[in-house]
Nucleic acid binder design. Structure first.
Length: 242
DNA sequence: CGCCAGGCCGTGT
DNA sequence: ACACGGCATGGC
């Protein structure tokens, strides 16, 4: 018998994953028909509600711009107008064009060639693109290219802070520490595809985040805990007032 | 009407 | 290394 000691943050995160699976089940994320569509969604959803992204994607579909060829052909100005519903169109449209240009110039215009490259070269290449930060890069790697990388986001940060799995000061350094924490949490069990694990874990994070982290600071009926307070933007702002 | 959404980037400490 | 404001639009 081992002496009972406090579980590590990584162990606690893994336990939370189990609770969330029981509560929400398989998530079959990311809502998209093709890998290329995943990539478009990853760009468009930056600081934007998914509902709005859906309308932009519908516009793109109707214009035949949901494919690599379609996106290459379309004029920048038209692209801007099609994705207007999801906001930041003056930044996101050129960013999408830059992605296509990169595939054309460096990867034989082939998403398959791109996906077949090692993660260690793809991630820096993605981060060097305009409009691609760590979360977008990792979402593309995991959900479009099926590379085994964790995806961290605002919801995971809230959950981690709320349950004190992280030191208080968040920020850009916070992203990497969240990724490290996730890697540690799922470092065991090589029998399961880590892509699938990371996929399911991030999806569950968003599910619980939408249900309990978004609006109401006080978490009632949350599978993780019913007696703590989520760090919503409003809570952060309120804390700053003092 | 005000707040926020599945971030990222440039600028200022 | 962080903090902060701007970027645009639509849902609730």
């Amino acid at each position: 018998m081992k002496p009972r000691q406090r579980p590590s943050p990584a162990q606690r995160l893994r336990n939370m994953h189990g609770l969330l699976e029981q509560a929400y089940g398989p998530q079959h994320w990311w809502p998209a028909e093709t890998p290329f569509e995943v990539i478009l969604g990853a760009y468009l959803t930056q600081n934007t509600a998914w509902k709005a992204v859906e309308r932009s994607l519908a516009n793109l579909r109707q214009a035949g711009a949901l494919t690599l060829d379609g996106l290459r052909s379309i004029a920048l100005e038209d692209l801007q107008n099609l994705i207007r519903p999801s906001g930041f169109h003056t930044r996101k449209a050129p960013a999408l064009k830059a992605f296509v240009a990169m595939l054309d110039r460096e990867f034989s215009s082939s998403l398959d060639v791109f996906a077949a490259s090692p993660t260690a070269t793809l991630r820096p290449r993605l981060l060097a693109l305009p409009g691609v930060g760590p979360e977008t890069a990792d979402a593309i790697l995991l959900y479009a290219l099926n590379h085994p990388v964790p995806v961290a986001d605002e919801y995971l940060r809230r959950v981690a802070l709320r349950h004190r799995l992280l030191a208080p000061p968040p920020g850009p350094a916070g992203y990497d520490s969240l990724v490290d924490l996730t890697r540690q949490a799922f470092a065991v069990d090589p029998s399961v595809s880590s892509s699938r694990l990371f996929n399911q874990f991030h999806a569950l994070t968003v599910a619980v985040g939408k249900a309990h982290c978004a609006r109401t600071p006080h978490c009632t009926g949350c599978p993780l805990a019913a007696d703590l307070q989520f760090v919503t933007p409003a809570v952060v702002k309120d804390a700053k007032r003092k």
